[in-house]
Design a protein around this nucleic acid. Structure first.
Lengths: 147, 147
DNA sequence: TAGATTTAGTTAGCCGACTAATTAAATAAA
DNA sequence: TTTATTTAATTAGTCGGCTAACTAAATCTA
């Protein structure tokens, strides 16, 4: 008995993230799938990045991006162009409809973020951020030790 | 320019969760895959739940559990037994090795949690929890409105 | 310059998650 | 009791993520 769920803060975070992914998904177009918003927003900020650059920024393996970009190219959201100076790298660009989708995604994500913290003061948000960063540091340290 | 990453608190949370999943994975046995810890810990607390019960508690669709339990039954972590009073429901039980794996998982998760909040006071943890709950409420409200 | 090594991306195969459609058992209704 | 409806689980098919093995281009080096 004691206290049934005294812990589980990380578990709660996971629960929130799942809800958030779901909410973003239902807020945007039907031809944009749940894993694609991160790629779209990054391309909106900087078009024409290589798959490796994108994979690093998105914390995803290059193989994952290969497949995702294949699909998004097929549905016409992005297109690949081989770098003329280095034939190994292929750079990814938004199409017209891809750019529109990216703008929509960015707005939806931002609205959700604003709403999620609507009852936070600026100081509270800053405190929350520092807390997250502490957690992040500990998790990073653990990873470094066990690898 | 302005402020490049003034927001992104939710994004940071997602990053932490990904790291956490990875850390749990590398901390436990090799025959336990990343999605299985939640199931194992729930079974450790209460053996013999139906797949529907488990799916609800884990926030996962029943179809997802069907497949996961198939695999875990094959690797000998759990076993299915049909409920004698209602032949539709199949109840899930830990095997001996499954119980051991569940204990290991539980300890690893708890250690990681303790470490993640090692620099938090009790009050800070409580504050953090309330902040998460606020975020959760807003996300839940959004979901209810858009469905 | 020829050959070895590194690097970017792809392919294959697996696990986790979802939806939609299906099966089988239990329950409600006619 | 027979039929209709609900309910638990499964199946099929898709997307997102991973690792391992592979290809092709660029670079290093002997």
């Amino acid at each position: 008995m004691e206290r049934m769920h005294g812990d589980g803060l990380i578990h709660l975070m996971g629960h929130i993230m799942k809800l958030h992914r779901h909410n973003v998904h239902i807020a945007i177009q039907d031809d944009v799938y749940p894993g694609q918003p991160p790629l779209l927003t990054r391309l909106l900020e900087h078009d024409g990045q290589s798959q490796k650059e994108l994979a690093m920024k998105m914390n995803v393996k290059p193989a994952t991006l290969t497949v995702m970009i294949n699909r998004m190219a097929k549905t016409g959201l992005v297109e690949r162009r081989t770098d003329p100076l280095d034939q190994r790298v292929s750079r990814v660009y938004l199409t017209g409809s891809g750019r529109q989708a990216a703008v929509d995604v960015k707005e939806a994500v931002q609205q959700l973020e604003v709403r999620s913290f609507s009852r936070f003061s600026e100081d509270e948000k800053e405190l929350f951020r520092r807390m997250l960063q502490q957690i992040h540091e500990e998790q990073e340290a653990f990873r470094r030790e066990h690898s």
